[in-house]
């Protein structure tokens, strides 16, 4: 299958690969997906006292599009606020990376990972997750 240049770039030069201390209170960790589906994403955010994401890291087991989706997500997360991060939609990732229909689930997974990381951070810091 043909990959877009942006997917190839993120795959070859992934941004922000790594881990943050998951025990730390200012770090939120989201792990989504399952080995049986061929994708597992771990996404972490480090949040400052004023609710700003000062660092983001990922590790992904999955196809090139899954790696690119999570790499892109960390780029977008860094420097933004937790509230703005919660608004990131998978469709934005699909558009940015020109993902084909069979790879849309990769972007959904990235959105889920962002939300899971935010929820984890909120839970640690006594903040209630907003009801949707």
């Amino acid at each position: 299958m043909a990959y877009s240049d942006k997917v190839l770039d993120h795959y070859q030069n992934p941004r922000n690969v790594g881990s943050l201390d998951k025990e730390s209170n200012d770090v939120g960790t989201g792990v989504v997906g399952a080995p049986e589906c061929g994708d597992v994403m771990k996404l972490q955010i480090k949040v400052s006292d004023d609710g700003k994401i000062i660092d983001a890291k990922f590790k992904t087991y999955g196809c090139g599009s899954a790696i690119a989706s999570s790499s892109l997500a960390t780029e977008w997360l860094k420097g933004t606020s937790v509230d703005a991060a919660a608004e990131i939609k998978n469709t934005q990732i699909v558009e940015e990376l020109s993902l084909p229909p069979v790879k849309i689930h990769c972007s959904v997974l990235a959105e889920d990972a962002i939300k899971a990381a935010i929820d984890d951070w909120k839970a640690k810091n006594g903040k209630k997750t907003e009801e949707k």
Binding site: P14, V17, S19, V31, V32, G33, A34, P35, E36, C37, V40, M41, K42, K59, T60, Y61, I67, H105, V108, L109, D112, A116
Partner: peptide, 24 residues
């Protein structure tokens, strides 16, 4: 592998078969 959360878990001693995954 350096990019793989599964590899990291195994290095940390996690048994992958015991992890509760969020299938999608």
């Amino acid at each position: 592998r350096e990019m793989s959360p599964l590899w990291e878990m195994v290095q940390e001693g996690v048994d992958l078969s015991q992890v509760k995954w969020t299938s999608h």
